[in-house]
Design a protein around this nucleic acid. Structure first.
Length: 189
DNA sequence: CAGTGGATGCTCT
DNA sequence: GAGCATCCACTGT
């Protein structure tokens, strides 16, 4: 299936379909290993309640990036999906770094490889994604998004850090990936 | 390893 | 004025 076709599907199918995909921004990026689905009519979604100046991109065509500031400090990036106007999007939460790892280390200021892209705020910082990319297309420079040959094994868990609809298992993670952000009730070791 | 609190800015009521 | 789709530093085991 083409990227364009995938992005028009239901948000959960898009979320699962993006796992294992390669996301590159100006030569820096890696394999997507953790995402969350934010559906239409989802109380936890920024699109709940209709379009505003912040979430406007969510109601535009699929395949655009919805980037917003989180807690006044971090940027978080979503891929808009589903039928245009629906307001659904997939939050990018973690990557397995493959390209431009040196630059990621410099941008993040950490030595631990595991902490480069494990979490939505860390991921955007490592890839250099900011509010200027709000509304940008994921299939155009500086972005490149390549779907996996085969879908990886996937685990579904509750979404992280939300207060509404907090028990729905709409966080999708590549099974056993060591690159995912730490979630609730993850086995200690 | 678990729990807590601070930073910080913008959106929406 | 409240409330965040977060991260980090620091505490106490």
């Amino acid at each position: 299936m083409s990227l364009q076709d995938l992005l028009r599907l239901d948000v959960h199918e898009v979320a699962r379909g993006l796992l294992g995909a390669t996301l590159i921004v100006d030569g820096v990026g890696g394999e997507i290993v953790e995402v969350e689905a934010y559906a239409a009519d989802d109380p936890a979604s920024h699109s709940f309640g209709g379009p505003t100046s912040r979430n406007g991109v969510m109601f535009g065509p699929p395949g655009r990036l919805y980037v917003y500031r989180s807690y006044g400090v971090h940027w978080c990036a979503n891929v808009v999906c589903g039928p245009e106007g629906e307001g659904a999007a997939v939050l990018l939460r973690a990557l397995r770094p493959t390209d431009g790892v040196e630059l990621m280390h410099r941008r993040r200021g950490v030595g631990d490889e595991r902490l480069l892209c494990a979490g939505p705020g860390r991921l955007t910082q490592a890839l250099g994604i900011t509010g200027t990319h709000d509304g940008a297309r994921v299939d155009r420079s500086p972005f490149r998004l390549r779907l996996p040959v085969r879908e990886p094994l996937i685990e579904a868990t509750p979404r992280i850090g939300i207060t509404k609809a907090s028990t729905l298992p709409w966080r999708y993670v590549v099974r056993e990936s060591r690159w995912a952000s730490r979630g609730p009730r993850r086995a200690s070791s």
